[in-house]
Nucleic acid binder design. Structure first.
Lengths: 342, 342
DNA sequence: GCACACAATGAATACGATTGCAAAATTGAG
DNA sequence: CTCAATTTTGCAATCGTATTCATTGTGTGC
């Protein structure tokens, strides 16, 4: 079997009877080349099966046209959706995503190291929180970083996330208006700022109606841990009459556990509210009341922001907070009248 | 804001008082370098924040340590699982995945073009069927290609898939033994060989018990289309008493539709069997009887195969067919006695 | 037909590493 | 201490392209 594309721009040049520069110019959009030679070159290129070597191009242009996509778990359907959309969006601009999966125990520094070596033009993070020293390292090397659905208190890093606080706030007031008196919060990972903001919103939303959050359990955005947490919540009275889960993925785990292991009905015995509005939330078996994150807009903003920063080189970090939308379905007892969202 | 890692091996060399070659050797695992100078160099490197430029390395070594991962949809949970595992597996070998998403309408040739330009060391395909001309192109450039969960009749391309035929066969005999008489098959994409093999197995499995498949509907591996297909199956009698869906994802769509729109009970009125055994299949709401694909083994075989082919350069295409496992849950009426699987 | 602007071309260099080769330094044996 | 064997080191070439610069060619207005 033969070795890889041994055919270079020089080979094409020779065959077409022009210089290597001419060949190069045929594949650069804005280079100055006559129509006549361009045709000769393209003909020769096709005959030889020539394709510009993007590695060499990257070396000279100092741009790999590659974005590092950093993530940890793909079990929550929210992330695959983002991955797919983001990849298509970047491909349209002739950029490609290089995948970096941070393992459970998170040797994040190691991953960061290989990212930095890989000469990516930008970093899109939708995973594990960035420690500030690593953030510092990124900013220092001048690589644009955009966090999506995550945030970190560090100037110089751009962030795109949805309005977690007001999403939580809506849930709080909605549950309070629905007459719930023992509301539980099923939190995501402790390191997750999104989970904290949702919680803070919940607390304030409840407070606005004279209620408070009675108990917090840890679900870590994981299906099985959410199940266990639910069982713990119902280990002994007083039992919650509503559970707000920090993701739909966990909310589904809660519903399954309530119905099966605990023999509770949703929403008659316990109300359940999620966050994200993944496709599963709409399935008839769940009909999950939830808070929709605008995935398309998030991806759009994140890619646009990243591309902008890559292109202008000199940039300032920006934060984009996108509005969420309450989705009223049937997993939570409805208030007598519509809630006021603020 | 500064430009990227302006620090090169030359800078490090100067600071450490050695030649640039020496610096390079410090970062090559098997190069000959004395302990003393290695320390000097590493010290200087750390002080300057030096990281080898992997683009330059790729150019000279003619290896990008990058694998193209080609996929189309991520909505079936089977694929995100594969992506995550494969990425971790390759990272462990210091390879990384470059994502190529084939859009719905599948401008596959265009995608293939950018893959070839990107100088990847190998291609892992879990998407849209490869047309034979494109396959030819791959083989010609000498890039190893492994199809996972897909196959194509073309020598020179390696394939890793599970035993779809026998999976289907088991389903057929199991349904027949359960006394079903009007079995429907909900197919995946028409171009999908896996779907065809599962169907063939189903037909033969049914035949082995003197039954046959009564009707085939097209679900294209898509949730919504599977819903519509199910509605069509029940538009007028005679109604199926069992549906075998080519994926769990579609099987869930079927169950939801049966229960909600059609008021049928599963499995009392209609049996449903899926394929894959994604996590969702085990959820109490579905308890889906299904055929498990060995995801871990598939990923393991595929990565091992690809790496082997990359390393030895001269290789022969191989096919690996992995055994599937029937998972008996409660979405299909059980036969009186255990079925004989062959 | 001439001067001038401007487009098209080729030669040469740079990008940042790896690596073969030969010189230099180190080691070991006698 | 000397000489051979071995390891360490630096020089220089290379990978395949983009791009600057100087040069040649083409067309335009007078």
């Amino acid at each position: 079997m033969k070795r890889k594309s041994a055919v270079t721009s020089r080979d094409v040049a020779e065959r077409a009877g022009v210089s290597q520069s001419a060949v190069s110019r045929c594949f650069s959009p804005k280079a100055s080349i006559s129509e006549k030679t361009k045709l000769k070159v393209l003909k020769a290129a096709k005959e030889l099966g020539y394709r510009p070597n993007s590695i060499a191009r990257s070396l000279i242009t100092r741009s790999s046209r590659t974005i590092a996509l950093v993530l940890s778990h793909l079990d929550n359907m929210f992330y695959p959706l983002v991955v797919e959309k983001a990849s298509l969006r970047f491909q349209a601009e002739d950029y490609h995503l290089l995948l970096f999966v941070v393992p459970e125990e998170g040797d994040f520094a190691g991953v960061m190291d290989s990212i930095l070596q890989s000469q990516v033009d930008g970093i899109l993070m939708m995973s594990a929180s960035l420690t500030s020293s690593l953030a510092h390292e990124c900013v220092e090397t001048g690589i644009p970083v955009v966090l999506i659905n995550r945030n970190v208190d560090f100037a110089g890093i751009s962030q795109v996330y949805s309005d977690n606080y007001h999403g939580g706030y809506w849930v709080g007031s909605y549950l309070a208006m629905g007459g719930h008196e023992r509301v539980a919060y099923l939190a995501g990972l402790e390191s997750s700022s999104t989970s904290r903001h949702r919680y803070q919103g919940l607390v304030d939303g409840l407070a606005s109606m004279g209620q408070q959050c009675q108990v917090v359990a840890q679900g870590d955005y994981d299906f099985e841990r959410a199940r266990l947490a639910t069982l713990r919540l119902f280990a002994e009275p007083p039992y919650p009459d509503a559970i707000f889960a920090a993701s739909d993925h966990m909310a589904v785990a809660v519903m399954e556990t309530l119905r099966t292991d605990l023999g509770r009905r949703v929403p008659e015995d316990v109300s359940v509210i999620g966050f994200d509005d993944t496709p599963i939330a709409a399935w008839p078996s769940y009909r999950l009341t939830t808070v929709r994150q605008p995935v398309d807009r998030m991806v759009e903003e994140a890619t646009a922001l990243l591309l902008k920063q890559i292109r202008q080189g000199d940039f300032n970090a920006e934060n984009r907070v996108l509005p969420v939308t309450p989705i009223l379905r049937h997993s939570a007892r409805q208030p007598a009248r519509e809630p006021v969202t603020d």
